[in-house]
């Protein structure tokens, strides 16, 4: 848990620097928001340890969601501070780690037949396209846009 917290803080620091270069938010300005995001994550991980039936991702979303709803004391400050962290800037270091882990799967990737590669493209296209299409149809039926 402590190890995980340290890793989260480290990624937070990298993201703050990326947020500075990419979105011009100074580290001082971004720090409180990042601390809040790390805090939500750590609380969510703790709750996941207590009640593992619910995945950590759901716990963390729930904690962050509750803390930013109007019923939560100080929510306006929390919303304003977390908004300083651009969601893209936070995702960039994550994908850098994803990239650095790619090598380990390349050997098994090379062994795959062409069919499975084609089908994986079809599967990803299908899930994205059909969800988009269904959402669009409902919005159209409701006359939203």
């Amino acid at each position: 848990m402590l190890e995980k917290t340290k890793v989260l803080v480290l990624i937070g620091i990298i993201a703050i620097l990326g947020n500075w270069v990419g979105y011009g938010v100074s580290p001082v300005q971004a720090l409180p928001g990042m601390l809040l995001i790390v805090l939500f994550t750590v609380i969510g991980l703790g709750l996941n340890k207590l009640i593992p039936k619910m995945p950590a991702v759901v716990w963390i979303s729930l904690i962050a969601l509750i803390a930013t709803t109007p019923i939560f004391p100080g929510n306006e400050w929390i919303v304003a501070k977390t908004a300083e962290i651009n969601f893209m800037a936070l995702a960039t270091p994550i994908l850098a780690y994803a990239g650095l882990s790619l090598g380990k799967d390349l050997e098994s990737f090379k062994k795959l037949g062409w069919r499975i590669v084609v089908i994986s493209l079809v599967v990803y296209t299908g899930t994205f396209l059909f969800a988009t299409l269904f959402a669009e149809i409902v919005f159209k039926l409701q006359g939203r846009f």
């Binding site: 890793v7 994550t41 969510g44 963390i60 930013t68 709803t69 962290i85 936070l90």
Partner: peptide, 24 residues
Amino acid sequence: MKRAAGILGISFLLFVAKLGSMLG
């Protein structure tokens, strides 16, 4: 590489927390 994959799993949680803070 395995370590990077492990960190990927943990760091994604920060992204989840950020998105959660937009949901509220």
